[in-house]
């Protein structure tokens, strides 16, 4: 059993109080809205993609600390990366949060993002951590709105 306090201490102290890349992009090329209808997390993600590179990224919205910290760290991570590399991170993060990717033994590019590995032991919070990544995926696919329920349910998919 993960001590959720430990998880909180690591991720929220910094990113929840001082989220990176918080706000809107005036020159966004992609914009997507992510919704966690069951718990009310609601974020907007702006991307500026030039060629194949995510030049800048910003998010805003109302969400719990896990979602906000995940979004903040995500933006810091994907800024300057290629769309393909960002999409690979989306897959790896989703795998880590749902338990299909073992960060200790499976090769991955998650780096500091592995602080979220503990959410797999908090089933009710998995979607909070995944929502920003889900929204990033939707944004690069030019989908306007994405929800963690229904066809896109990450928890059902991984079950």
């Amino acid at each position: 059993m993960t001590d959720s306090k430990q998880l909180y201490q690591e991720v929220i102290l910094d990113h929840n109080r001082k989220p990176r890349n918080y706000g809107k992009l005036a020159d966004a090329t992609h914009r997507s809205e992510g919704l966690n209808p069951l718990c009310g997390d609601h974020i907007w993600l702006d991307l500026k993609v030039a060629g194949d590179v995510i030049e800048s990224v910003a998010f805003e919205g109302q969400s719990c600390a896990i979602c906000k910290a995940s979004a903040s760290m995500m933006t810091a991570n994907v800024k300057g990366k290629s769309v393909a590399d960002a999409e690979r991170l989306v897959e790896e993060f989703r795998g880590m949060a749902t338990g299909s990717l073992d960060v200790a033994n499976d090769a991955n590019h998650l780096g500091r993002l592995t602080v979220f590995a503990g959410v797999k032991d908090l089933p009710s919070r998995v979607k909070c951590a995944i929502l920003p990544w889900h929204t990033l995926h939707a944004a690069v696919q030019s989908q306007a709105v994405v929800s963690t329920e229904g066809d896109n349910d990450p928890v059902v998919q991984s079950a």
């Binding site: 959720s4 909180y8 929220i12 069951l38 718990c39 009310g40 719990c64 896990i66 908090l122 919070r125």
Partner: peptide, 22 residues
């Protein structure tokens, strides 16, 4: 300044079961 879901997860650490959400 604390989302109810964070409150619920952390109260659970103390053995306290509450509902959070809408």
């Amino acid at each position: 300044d604390v989302h109810p879901h964070d409150v619920g997860t952390l109260l659970n650490e103390e053995g306290v079961a509450v509902r959070t959400g809408h």
